[in-house]
Design a protein around this nucleic acid. Structure first.
Lengths: 223, 223
DNA sequence: CCAAAAGTGTTAACCCTACACCCATGT
DNA sequence: ACATGGGTGTAGGGTTAACACTTTTGG
């Protein structure tokens, strides 16, 4: 690990700005998607050391002329050709030795995508979707990042109704219900859930075909 | 602004770790306290450029061998001799030109302190508490950071009952009530508030003196 | 004497929860 | 036939919101 010898102390004069302690900063993307059956997360298989052949979140170093948000979007496109509907910053992970090469802080993002296909990486790196409860071992401290992401996902689901960024254009109530159960990690009463969703006023009912067999679920979309 | 010439691209070989783009990273502390009258924020007057003589949050560069959390604590102690009861990371601010000297990302922290005195800075820098609704113009993008901090403070108050980190050892219900009103930014019914607090089971009633004039408020403490 | 502060109590509306029932389909 | 999945309704409990009265102190 390449320690800098510079320590910043209040009051000392450091006329050269490059003498401030510097750190490499990466942006990682925890991308969730939902195929109306399972909640999934996008992982890529690392092509080189450290953690070669290990699974990790897509991401990479932030360039000097971009924000961490821009860096996250760019890296995600480069590695997986994916564009997401929603991004929210998670807390920084900065344990000094979390990357064996050198000090690398990471700014992780929780991302939500409707697209569950088309994740070809541009180079040799494999990219694929894993069900959230069947994840392989992850590189670096990405396991901790995953925990954090799931916590924030729960919070955002309840406070901001972010399901709209995961569901397809049209969907049925049971499909939406399954998503909520998987994110919340508990059972939710079917009927109370439907009533709640309808009362929120964020759903539109698609015209139900006049023939109305009760076994066929009604179709909804977000306003 | 001192741009690095290095751009990281997927697939290129960079055998030397120092070739990764680097950034200076600071940790800033948005410290709230409450004197049982007003919600306050700690600011220091900057002793040098940029933004010399401007008010800003205490904070400074993170050392290579410490986490951003450790850096935040260290800088706060160095600049104000203050130790806080609670810290929560806010989102990173990373607009490339937010610091005119060079690219500097900042990781802000929301901090809660019971101490509303004793904020002598170690060097010439003045430090003092400002009522949250009477803030001076702030350096850098600290105005935006303040907005973010107030949003998160609201959220944490409702979800995690963080009032315990701001209130003194013992306090009255009206004092606690005022704090909630100031953080939430709206009126809260006195009686409903007291009932809610008591029902949460997080308060202890101190023995009320047997002489019980109704004008004297009862004294509480957190469990 | 009156305004302001603090304590106490009641009511109705709303929301959430836990259920029971019906219908249609596929095996 | 029956298990399954989907739609609809109801009854009870808890929480919240709105609101009135009393007492005491300070000016």
């Amino acid at each position: 690990m390449a320690h800098s010898v510079y320590k910043y102390r209040t009051g000392e004069a450091y006329p050269h700005c490059y003498k401030y302690p510097q750190a490499a900063v990466t942006a990682d993307c925890v991308v969730f998607s939902y195929d109306c059956k399972e909640l999934k997360v996008l992982l890529i298989k690392r092509g080189r050391d450290p953690f070669k052949d290990c699974w990790a979140f897509p991401g990479g170093f932030v360039n000097p002329d971009e924000t961490v948000e821009q860096g996250a979007v760019r890296e995600l496109v480069e590695e997986t050709s994916l564009r997401v509907e929603f991004m929210e910053q998670l807390k920084v992970f900065s344990t000094p030795d979390r990357d064996p090469r050198q000090r690398v802080m990471t700014v992780p993002f929780l991302c939500l995508s409707k697209n569950v296909e088309a994740v070809g990486g541009d180079d040799a790196a494999q990219a694929s979707w894993f069900p959230v409860d069947k994840l392989p071992a992850l590189a670096f401290d990405h396991g901790q990042i995953m925990e954090e992401a799931r916590k924030v996902l729960k919070r955002l689901l309840l406070s901001d109704n972010i399901a709209r960024y995961l569901m397809p254009q049209t969907f049925t109530m049971p499909q939406l219900h399954r998503l909520y159960e998987q994110i919340m990690g508990c059972r939710l009463d079917r009927r109370n859930f439907a009533r709640k969703m309808n009362s929120l006023g964020i759903l539109e009912t698609q015209e139900r075909e006049s023939g109305l067999p009760s076994r066929i679920a009604s179709v909804y979309s977000f306003k």
